[in-house]
Computed example of a mutant assay.
Amino acid sequence: MRVSFTKMHGLGNDFIVLDAREAELPPVDACFARQIADRRTGVGCDQLILLNHSDCADFRMRIFNSDGSEVESCGNASRAVALLHGKPACIETGGGLISAHLSGQDVAVDMGEPQFEWDAIPLAFAMDTLSMPVGWEYLENPVAVNVGNPHAVFFVDNCDAVDLARLGPLIETDPVFPNRVNVNVATVESRAAIRLHVWERGAGLTRACGTGACATAIAAMRRGLVDRTANITLPGGTLTIEWGEDNRITMTGPATIAFTGSFDWDQFA
């Protein structure tokens, strides 16, 4: 069975997009996702994105990390599939309904409302999510926030100096986070600018993480470090995050179609 795909990226965070909205595809599982995401023996990507029919939105987006785990939300992928759709869209995700539209050369996505309750992150037990009383070596007292998926945000003097490749997996899999967690280390540069590095749950170090940018901006806003609109610069580029008075998060940034192709499904099944 020959299947077409679209390779896309948002600031270097790359995806294989499979469109099953019109023609049904065989079931996608963790093993299939791992094999097609492999950069040596597969097509290669950070996330595999599957588009399906939805009864409550224009379409449904399922997201599989390169380790095969299925996750609730992906900000960069949301911009990518909105670009592919080519017009305003309501998108069903595991983290809830989101909406997206083209904004000039960029894509703007309404990422919904952040959640701060300890059991909505979720955490293993009740604690202050604005300054968690936990630490891993010199990374201490993170902000916890759920923006469709769980994030821990650490504010440091120089995020470039943090050994996130070593500390990221330790924090991601700590028992305090029952569903694992995305790990963000951020440096506030002004009332409107933050630098950020992300260890993405199930994918590792990434050039960009849309939900990480949202979570970090919201965390900084909750602590009074930045204004309600901020530019978040990751290794792959910059996203603009706005936390509106209606409590909803808008993420704006680019998305790119890299190339299209096809593969034999049985090769990865």
Rank of each mutant, 00 (worst) to 15 (best):
F5T: 08
T6P: 01
M8F: 00
G10L: 01
G10D: 04
G10F: 00
V17Y: 01
A20C: 03
E22F: 00
E24G: 04
L25Q: 09
V28N: 11
D29I: 00
F32A: 04
R34M: 11
D38E: 11
R40D: 15
G44A: 06
C45Y: 00
D46Q: 06
Q47S: 07
Q47Y: 04
I49H: 06
H53P: 08
A57W: 05
D58S: 07
R60N: 12
I63W: 08
I63D: 11
F64T: 09
F64L: 13
F64D: 12
N65T: 10
S66E: 10
S66V: 04
D67C: 05
E70Q: 15
V71R: 11
E72W: 05
S73I: 06
S73C: 11
C74K: 10
G75F: 05
N76Y: 02
V81C: 11
V81T: 10
L83E: 06
L84C: 10
H85C: 03
S99H: 08
H101F: 08
L102W: 03
Q105H: 14
V107L: 09
M111Q: 09
G112F: 02
G112P: 04
P114F: 07
F116M: 07
E117H: 15
E117P: 00
A120P: 00
A120W: 10
A124I: 01
A126S: 15
L130G: 12
L130I: 01
M132L: 15
M132G: 03
M132H: 06
P133T: 11
V134G: 04
E137M: 12
Y138C: 06
L139Y: 08
N146V: 03
V147C: 13
P150E: 13
A152W: 08
V156H: 12
D157H: 14
N158Q: 13
A161I: 03
V162L: 11
D163N: 15
D163H: 13
L164A: 02
A165C: 12
L170V: 10
T173A: 13
D174M: 03
P175T: 09
F177P: 01
F177W: 15
P178N: 12
N179A: 12
N184G: 10
T187G: 06
A193T: 08
V198Q: 04
W199R: 00
E200K: 04
A203G: 03
T206L: 06
A208Q: 05
G212N: 02
I218L: 14
L225I: 05
V226T: 13
R228F: 00
A230P: 01
N231K: 11
I232D: 01
T233N: 08
T233F: 00
P235T: 05
T240C: 14
E242F: 00
W243M: 12
W243H: 15
G244T: 10
G244Q: 15
R248S: 10
R248H: 15
G253Y: 04
G253S: 13
G253Q: 11
P254I: 02
T256V: 10
T256C: 11
I257C: 14
F259W: 15
G261W: 00
F263K: 11
D264I: 02
W265N: 09
D266N: 15
